[in-house]
Design a protein around this nucleic acid. Structure first.
Lengths: 344, 344
DNA sequence: TTGAAAGCGTTACCAT
DNA sequence: ATGGTAACGCTTTCAA
């Protein structure tokens, strides 16, 4: 005979509700306040040792973990530093910078959160970030306007720092203008006697912010000379490079700044396949100073890029958070210098 | 005469308190409930059009942004998917996978948050994650034990998914065992008639998880044959590669699996410099199937790695969140196949 | 159609 | 030394 239980077993094993500090208090036989005192080691109040132990044991037994949202709601502030995930896959340089930054902010007792804002743009994204009430926001790229900054500040962000090509009204700025990269490359190529300079512009979406500036930098370095710069659209793909190389001689260029070392490697290989002499016939220079450039033959000249140390940025953030009154600062933090090897 | 204001001006421009829904209600001349109804488009209640407009205008004027923590505190749950930031700088493959995943979860209306847990390890880190009360946690690597899983689940996480080499009790697992990568390489080299196989093991910290498995995979592929595998410790640096190459012939190897394409490029260049013939004298195979392998000469054989699509993982997460009862699933999701080019 | 009030988990103030 | 209580900002049920 089939037994029908009076209280049918719930389909899922009735996942217990998440334990709260009240549960801990109940189990330890004390008040919620005492629990809070004990678990936060509040020095203003002295709790007897036996009580402390009972509380700790109860907490452990229940697997109690405090609720961050409730805590910061009560506290009126948090130590969350929000960093929107950059939409573009970034290279090893920038990754390392971000890692260092996270580490440094962690040392200063901030919690770093990378927020993946998919599909949101500009001020809409800023609103989404503001909902989290971060104490500071670090925005890579150029996807934040003055409106967005205002929204963030009004919702309690004490530091808003942009990492990008240009200042944004109201925000602190770490200016990383890639113009300098192109400029360095252009100056170098000029000094090597080159006059007809190609500039690779990646077709991959998302890279425009960088490629545009790098191209502009080359143009700037050529101003007042008889040299010319020619933009060369190129997809990161062997076939595209081969096609570009095939019409290379018809372009009449004697040098090329290849956006970065990876595109340089791609193009250089295609040019060599085509029999174009490097550096005699065409000089090639990359950027980012990746390991691979040293391993190519001829060794690849490149523009070495210096990013600020993560520690410095962390200190800036911390300072601004503690002293939010000051006027927004702008720092030029991108250094570029040519590493001359054999390809130019 | 100097006027002393009765109410001295505060030093900092008195950053106004963050506007709350109560402020909006006051300005619009309605109750907080009405504000909530209007701003959330609650369909159960009908609010007159003029009121709606007043509320919207008030909200806009104040720059009101709802407080996510307060909201989810009240709601008792959030749609936050937490992903601890991998401690190791990951390559382009994994980055793309993560991007895709973020996008797909975003489509399903989850908020993806990458949490930088610096210095925290194991169950301690799990506690920190649990404080955020995420609805799901995706943990890359192998830094989570059964205890940690239990903590997360007890604090409300409905899905805990590990992305790593082995299962963890209680959690769903996307098994990505790099053993297969080494195995594929070993099988390939064997088939090419090689018997004395070197295996590069990067000295860089954090890569052990992968390098160990890849080495094990080679060993496994060689079991029952007369071939041998020799681990070769190597730092990602030209000098180290040169030193290894200098003693290459004394090692008596006829093939090398170089951990990945980048180490392969480094070593291959050093070997070529030393006059070691590739592939005749020594076959070289990398892994990850990066673009650079195609551009090397000889073209680099490699192990192409297939990761799961971000969409698939997102769907798994969503399914588990909605139906948390089920037993933890394990999926082998790492595919490895050799791409044979000219270096082997 | 709108408003009052309770409650989410915490902590700080004020009594006891 | 310990406990009651209010308040953080928001949503939702119930009542008017």
């Amino acid at each position: 005979m089939v037994q029908i239980p009076k209280q049918p077993v719930p389909p899922t094993p009735a996942q217990r509700p998440v334990p709260t500090s009240a549960d801990v208090a109940r189990l330890a036989g004390v008040s919620r306040a005492t629990v809070s005192y004990v678990l936060n080691n509040t020095s203003a109040v002295r709790i007897s040792e036996p009580t402390r132990r009972r509380v700790h044991e109860a907490a452990k037994e229940l697997g109690y973990v405090p609720h961050a949202a409730a805590r910061s709601l009560r506290a009126g502030h948090s130590r969350m530093v929000l960093m929107p995930t950059p939409s573009v896959p970034v290279g090893p340089l920038y990754s390392q910078f971000l890692n260092e930054l996270q580490w440094a902010l962690g040392r200063l007792d901030y919690t770093v959160v990378q927020y993946g804002s998919v599909g949101l743009h500009g001020d809409e994204a800023a609103r989404a970030w503001a909902e989290l009430r971060p104490v500071a926001v670090l925005v890579p790229g150029s996807d934040l306007g003055p409106q967005g900054v205002a929204v963030l500040k009004r919702s309690g962000a004490r530091a808003v720092v942009t990492l990008g090509p240009e200042r944004v009204e109201g925000a602190h700025a770490l200016l990383m203008d890639h113009d300098k990269v192109g400029h360095s490359a252009g100056v170098h190529l000029l000094a090597r006697g080159r006059r007809r300079i190609g500039v690779v512009v990646p077709e991959e979406p998302g890279l425009e912010i960088f490629s545009k500036s790098r191209l502009d930098g080359v143009h700037r370095s050529l101003a007042g000379t008889d040299a010319t710069a020619t933009a060369l659209s190129l997809a990161y793909e062997e076939g595209a490079a081969a096609r570009l190389a095939a019409r290379w001689r018809s372009l009449g260029l004697d040098a090329v700044f290849a956006y970065n070392d990876e595109y340089a490697m791609l193009l250089m290989r295609a040019l060599q396949e085509e029999g174009v002499g490097i550096p005699d016939e065409t000089a090639v220079i990359g950027a980012d100073d990746l390991m691979l450039g040293r391993l190519l033959r001829p060794r690849l000249s490149t523009v070495h890029i210096e990013l600020p140390s993560g520690r410095d940025l962390a200190e800036l953030v911390d300072r601004v958070v503690r002293e939010p009154g000051g006027a927004p600062e702008s720092h030029e933090v991108l250094g570029a210098r040519v590493v001359h090897r054999d390809s130019t």
